[in-house]
Design a protein around this nucleic acid. Structure first.
Lengths: 331, 331
DNA sequence: CCACTCAAGTTAAGCGCTTAACCTTCCTGC
DNA sequence: GCAGGAAGGTTAAGCGCTTAACTTGAGTGG
């Protein structure tokens, strides 16, 4: 059977309270006793049950990371950074993919609450803020990542999606493009990027070619299909595409190539996120980089101080960076 | 404060035992009482503490998935499938990246044991079987994935790496290649693939160009560097490369292109895993596909039956499939 | 020499559940 | 009319910890 605190206490000839105190380094215990107990612990290879101590109200040292899709490189890269940072605090992270489905968001959160996770990092859509609000009402530490709720006070680390959208579009305009289409999905961040795109176009007196066309997903396939649709519906084909993530950008490039267009000579494409795949696709993808590692670090730090009792809400907005590669041409 | 089983019992005018029984659907409770209790539960929005019930020896409904690197597409895709399948059983998965470091493997396993996870899926290297053995000695449900321990009885779902290596190499040979180099990393699966490669070469009386050169990592960069090294050290350049994963294959392609070689005309490349990136790289990567979804499903199923008390060890070897795309040329 | 302080433990309650054992009713059959 | 059993609960112990409150004994000052 597994060794518990009683076994240790018995072997060391002390009470379980003493053992508990030496483990947690609390209370007053003589060095001699401490050593004795620690020796026994090592000898018996005793590992305190975190379940039992969680039941006493201590931390479970586990956080939940709710994201849209772990198979999406942006999120898996982010998850890896979060995992590493959390690990510095001796935390584990349980990862839950929601596919942006409210029901999954709710289900996972509810389940993890039952498991007494110490806090959440939320990177899913949460179009219905009520779910998040409920968490906060119950004073569960939460930090939101990869989206913003300008109206509500929450812990949040994000980029400025509007500005990044503006930045991407302005860059395209600077490169001489005038007919620029956007490929986006109907989620908050993409809507903001779209706003940035729209304003940049307006500010330069350029027409927005099409009604907003939102992709169903943020996949390569969705980007591919979107480009085809754009090309079909445009009287005059765009010379540049702003895709709201790298996956869709890749899809757009693939679709272009299939149509016999060469990127960037016939059509330029800019992506978003700067995931692994931006360097794999040919031509290498010009894209707006999100500082994933920094986002992860800040998010975990924020969460940890919330867990430690900081009840203030902090908002951290990080800078994006335009990474120029080969998918955009000056015309 | 959070509502507990006593609150429910009081509100329903029954004992906590009764409440527990209706929740777990055990014991004998009249339909009337059941309904009454269930109504109260809904009304109070009561969610039983899984921590408390775990302390009573019930399942935590959490499994640990230990893998080398979540940011690696092969593993993030696999993780997503595992997560989904586990979710069908109402399980969460905590994901731990080890970078193939024994110390991290041990640390994570030990930590998760303290948290009473119900079982493990192990996809890290575990060159030192003792860690796994210790788990099994303590009768913790374990299933190993993505590698094989032919000598020991364990739950295991894997592919036949040796045969897959043989298959990849034979394919290259069929396509007319004779000077074939391999890019591999010093981990079990790659060593097996290497064995397959070697035997295929021998069986066709072809020389193995170089001493085994093991890449330091399984990254694009490592593949890139390996190709350069191969080219430098070869008196006669190979016409084909077998890279033991898609990432390294991409690196090899990138390096080739940088050297002015065109793939597949000047040099053919075959990868392994069939991750997302195989379809992104240009030319599209011919590769050996691992049935990731099937691996995930089988692994979770196996683990669940082990958790349910099945003490028999099962070995499931799944078939790989050669996916022909455009990175290998018949010469 | 006594009152007091303080160091170093111990005792015991309790966290929120599960479950074996027990207790009432009430029904059934002979 | 009553043993026997089943139906529908309740009681209470215990899972492995933490911690407030208490005990004990040694040291200290006046």
């Amino acid at each position: 059977m597994k060794v518990n605190i009683y076994d240790v206490a018995k072997a060391a000839n002390v009470s379980i309270a003493t053992v508990s105190k030496v483990i947690n380094n609390t209370g007053r215990i003589s060095d001699k006793t401490k050593k004795k107990v620690n020796d026994i612990i090592k000898e018996l290879d005793y590992k305190p049950s975190l379940i039992a101590s969680a039941l006493m109200g201590k931390n479970t040292r586990t956080i939940g990371f709710i994201l849209p899709d772990l198979a999406n490189p942006f999120f898996s890269e982010l998850a890896r950074y979060i995992e590493d940072k959390a690990n510095e605090y001796d935390y584990n992270v349980v990862i839950c993919s929601t596919d942006y489905l409210k029901e999954k968001e709710d289900m996972y959160i509810s389940l993890l609450m039952q498991k007494n996770v110490d806090g959440f990092i939320l990177a899913s859509g949460f179009e219905h803020f009520e779910t998040v609000q409920k968490l906060m009402d119950e004073e569960v530490p939460v930090v939101i990542v990869a989206r913003n709720y300008p109206e509500v006070p929450v812990n949040l680390v994000a980029i400025h999606d509007y500005e990044a959208g503006y930045q991407a579009t302005s860059f395209l305009i600077q490169q001489g493009h005038q007919r620029i289409s956007i490929i986006a999905r109907d989620i908050w961040s993409n809507r903001e990027r779209f706003r940035g795109y729209s304003d940049a176009m307006k500010d330069h007196q350029l027409p927005i070619p099409l009604e907003i066309y939102y992709a169903k997903e943020s996949t390569i396939q969705a980007g591919h299909d979107s480009l085809q649709q754009i090309m079909q519906e445009s009287k005059i084909a765009p010379t540049a595409i702003f895709a709201c993530n790298d996956m869709m950008a890749v899809g757009a490039i693939k679709a272009s190539q299939k149509m016999g267009l060469v990127v960037p000579d016939d059509i330029s494409v800019i992506g978003f996120d700067d995931t692994l795949i931006a360097q794999i696709i040919n031509p290498a993808l010009t894209t707006i980089a999100q500082p994933k590692k920094k986002i992860a670090n800040e998010a975990v730090n924020l969460l940890m101080s919330a867990i430690d009792g900081d009840t203030q809400n902090h908002t951290i907005i990080l800078k994006t960076e335009l990474i120029e590669r080969d998918s955009v041409k000056k015309i």
